[in-house]
Design a binder for these strands. Structure first.
Lengths: 217, 217
DNA sequence: GCAGTTACGCTACGACTCGTAGCGAAAGAG
DNA sequence: CTCTTTCGCTACGAGTCGTAGCGTAACTGC
């Protein structure tokens, strides 16, 4: 279904594909989402504007793929042998990508657009969101193998829980970086993870565990 | 400091102000962020386009004020006498406003724009974000008076903790509604609040409370 | 080698939006 | 009554969108 029947005719230039995505990313860095135009991207990529429209229906779809490429090559879940360390690491990794000028300006813009465009929403989901969510599933699996988290009997409950965890982790990082516009540093990641794991009622004041004074590094 | 010396000349029509904001909101509902134009809003409001530009520099600033008006009249923190109930209520209240078509399509769009526009970022902060954050501060104060949360000695740590809580609550709800595009119902709010209060390590399965014992080892 | 098919670069186009300028008229302040 | 500012209106240049048409380039199957 994917590569249907495209045996005949001149094949599409893979080089143009890369050039366009790279140009899109560069244009986002330099101009920001709202001032990036298809004509500008085409000029940067050294291709004709019609070549863009043969591949992507509009700016939204193009930018989604450009952003997805950034996350694809940068987001990973290290196996540090401990749930807390794993979460902290993925939080920092996610925040680092989110703080890049191109993702910073583009990700929320396409998400906003997707509220009115189901096709765009699906593209964002498959190209970006679902791949992020996989990290939560992998992380939970590891934690369960280590005995840090209980195994769930009901798969439906398990799925709901994973969705909740994902919304909490991704949502908090996105909100911190894009709305509050404050950096996600080691200290924040540590406090966030501690709260996620142990909750408010534990009486935490969220001072870094071990009660070291809140001095900077 | 605000708009101080405007004693002379024809005063601005307060009626036009309301008409423009209402028209903006209606246009957002009908067309969505990207297809709302200043000319369209002016026509809906029954005013000239130049009248809009006398009050707002561009579409972003106008939409921020229109969205802020929605949150102003709809976001509240009920005092239910219990931290868990208070959080659940404010989560549901926030999610309800966020699910409106006008906020849904506009809020993340202006946030995305604000990454390249410091003036817009300040406007969003003062008109929307800071007022939301106040709910966190009020909620914590009440919980501390009830003895549900410990009082913090260090004001700086207290501020960082409040920022963290705010990013977690607002971020999770925003992500759930706008990115995952799933509804925030009572069940989700209860699971989220339980997790926020008690954390993962308590062995919760996030099944509706009372369902099963937390098989922790 | 040749025909068929598709991609490419290029140009041009209508439709739309932006933000501004200029005008005369309207509405208050002193 | 004069001064000042806002108002509605029209018009404008600049920019963008997405499409169409053209001749050429590249690759496939016969």
């Amino acid at each position: 279904m994917n590569p249907p029947a495209r045996r005949t005719g001149r094949p599409r230039s893979a080089e143009a594909d890369r050039a366009i995505l790279d140009a899109t990313r560069a244009a986002l860095v330099e101009l920001g989402w709202s001032k990036v135009s298809m004509g500008d991207v085409a000029a940067r990529a050294g291709v004709a504007k019609t070549t863009l429209y043969r591949r992507w229906a509009n700016k939204n779809e193009l930018v989604v793929d450009a952003v997805a490429a950034v996350f694809d090559e940068g987001l990973e879940l290290p196996d540090l042998g401990c749930l807390q360390a794993d979460i902290e690491a993925v939080v920092l990794s996610f925040a680092r990508l989110l703080a890049l000028p191109e993702t910073r300006t583009a990700l929320m813009a396409v998400v906003a657009e997707s509220t009115r465009d189901p096709a765009l929403r699906d593209r964002i989901r498959t190209a970006i969101v679902d791949r992020q969510k996989r990290l939560v599933l992998v992380g939970r699996e590891r934690a369960q193998e280590r005995g840090e988290l209980p195994r769930e009997q009901d798969p439906e409950t398990a799925a709901r829980t994973a969705d909740l965890i994902f919304d909490m982790i991704a949502g908090a990082v996105v909100h911190r970086v894009l709305v509050s516009a404050e950096p996600v540093d080691t200290e924040w990641a540590r406090g966030f993870t501690a709260l996620l794991l142990h909750g408010l009622a534990a009486g935490l004041t969220l001072a870094p565990s071990g009660a070291r004074p809140p001095r900077n590094d």
